[in-house]
Amino acid sequence: MKTVSLIIDGRKITANEGEILLWVALDNGFYIPNLCAMRDNHEPMAACRLCFVEVAGRDRPVTACTETITEGMTVNTRGESALSLARQGFELLMASHALDCAHCPRNGSCELQKIARHLHVKLKSKHLRKLERDLPIDTSHPLFVYDANKCVLCGRCVRVCREHSGTGVFGFAHRGFERRVTTFADEPMDTSDCDHCAECITVCPTGALVPKEEQSP
């Protein structure tokens, strides 16, 4: 396969032609915040709007998950306009996230905490209003607890459930602020067709899907 070379944060990188910038950067040790991207997903979902980078010759930051690398591309993952956009996107997510790290099983392994560290922002926004959705927490499933109030709608669980296990328990419902990941007709998780593969817990970046302590997989 043909390779192309590009420069990320001043370092020359060689990678296969046609690859997605986000994966090339991550594989070479450059962290770019991201939530909704998945490697085996053919089309970028481009929904979380966090992986902004600056590419020379482009007047605005672009999302790394939608950029195919090209020969001679010069990328800056630390540019101020890209980071500022990512920060604002992240703050919006956090302003609608049920923030309770101290009691959250994901504390320490949460990707939101990682992104906050990378972007140097507090988890609690100073100037945005706290807009929570107050959705019920589903504890019905024997393996996991689903707390929609902590969900960032990255869609990873929706995709693994469909593509890996083929069951399709999860789906998106409603629109706008009301959009959420749920089951068909909002049925409790234990009455769904879940085959207990637990893939969704593995991919969830937040505390929305966490294993029940006594039965951790």
Binding site: L92, L131, L153, G176, F177, R179
Partner: peptide, 22 residues
């Protein structure tokens, strides 16, 4: 617009909701 937003991306889903709240 916030009611008609599809809700897929962060800025439109949550940003317009924040603006509306203000």
């Amino acid at each position: 617009t916030q009611r008609e937003s599809c809700g897929k991306c962060t800025f439109c889903r949550l940003g317009t909701r924040q603006m509306l709240a203000i």
